[in-house]
């Protein structure tokens, strides 16, 4: 059974040959709309997969339902396109059974936070060692344009002609509330930063929750433009670096702590980067501040907001199995069946 249930769950086997992005491109025709942000995310993921030193056969892509969930079909690895919202539960069964596999979940804001909110929460709480790529476009695309659980209040869509009444989730604050051990954010068009975040997600042992702002050019075009356009991103995004002060706008602004609250300050006039908050990925209290920081009051934090070490579910799961087997080396079916109160009839 050792082949089926490796005792060392941390060990994903090394690839025997160098892989390229092309190795991860499947023969399927990609059916996303032309101009969709999903293309960029797929491309970064394929690039990163090839760099990780893992054999292709040990990658498993899991998804639920929605535009983003077509992702597994386009990655030449093992893939499972499952049912709406339940990808985390499938992934949990797979990772617990086969901890040596590198398991990635592609999901959307509706899939992971609406119909699948429950499973997302429990996967994060358990700290199953998988990578979640949440394509957040603040709209339902595949069902042709209804508001989603991350849509802004008052949004007019096909199902909300007078404006949405719902208050939206902040996905990373949600994840943190679910005891996530890794939260990060990037944007479909930030290709380099996205790859860095994906690599960090892979390196993290535990559930890595990555929100990727993604543009749906058909039903919610420009949803993130006010944050991520070239002209404004320097002012409105805060690119985090661990151990570095939180400065943005070309070094002219920073985040400073006033009491328990972060505030935006103009640097100069005696204020320097040294007066700003220093990013500490491991600090859960800082993570709570960062996860709630949103435009326009603040620039939106990008990169790894938080990571901390906690035993993974799959490792603990397999440790218990190993412990039980070690404690009962002579376990057999016969011993189990005949082991209780029995009697003989001659």
């Amino acid at each position: 059974m050792s082949e089926l249930q490796p005792s060392d769950s941390e060990k994903v086997p090394a690839a025997t040959r160098a892989l390229t992005k092309k190795d991860f491109m499947s023969d399927q025709i990609i059916r996303w709309c032309p101009g969709c942000g999903d293309y960029a995310i797929l491309s970064q993921a394929q690039t990163v997969f090839a760099e990780l030193g893992i054999p292709r056969e040990n990658f498993v892509m899991i998804s639920g339902i929605g535009c983003s969930s077509r992702f597994p079909y386009y990655v030449n690895a093992y893939g499972f396109h499952t049912i709406h919202g339940r990808a985390p539960a499938f992934a949990t069964g797979i990772k617990a059974s086969r901890p040596e596999l590198s398991v990635w979940i592609a999901t959307g804001d509706g899939d992971s936070l609406s119909i699948g909110g429950n499973h997302t929460a429990h996967m994060l709480r358990r700290n199953v060692d998988v990578q979640v790529l949440l394509f957040n476009n603040r709209i339902y695309g595949l069902t042709k344009g209804q508001y989603s659980p991350t849509s802004e209040p008052g949004k007019k869509t096909k199902s909300t002609p007078m404006g949405s009444l719902d208050h939206p989730f902040m996905p990373l604050a949600f994840a943190l509330g679910c005891e996530a051990t890794f939260i990060a954010r990037s944007v479909d068009i930030f290709t380099k930063e996205q790859r860095e975040v994906m690599r960090a997600a892979h390196d993290h042992k535990g559930a890595s929750f990555v929100e990727i702002y993604q543009n749906c050019n058909i039903f919610n075009d420009g949803a993130w433009d006010s944050l991520v356009d070239k002209q404004v991103r320097g002012e409105r995004c805060l690119f985090l670096e661990n151990g570095k002060p939180m400065v943005f706008a070309g070094g002219t602004k920073g985040i400073k702590l006033e009491g328990l609250r972060p505030t935006v300050v103009e640097l100069g006039n005696g204020l320097t980067a040294d007066d700003c908050l220093v990013h500490d990925e491991a600090d859960p209290y800082l993570a709570a501040l960062l996860a709630r920081m949103d435009y326009p009051e603040f620039p939106v934090p990008m990169g790894v907001l938080h990571r901390r070490s906690r035993p993974t579910y799959d490792a603990l799961f397999n440790e218990q199995i190993a412990e039980a087997k070690a404690a009962a080396p002579t376990a057999s079916l016969k011993q189990l069946l005949y082991g209780g109160e029995t009697w003989k009839v001659e």
């Binding site: 339940r86 499938f90 069964g93 797979i94 429950n118 429990h122």
Partner: peptide, 13 residues
Amino acid sequence: IAAVAAAIGASFS
């Protein structure tokens, strides 16, 4: 639902 989903995931693996 998660119970059956995890079981199917296990079968897949």
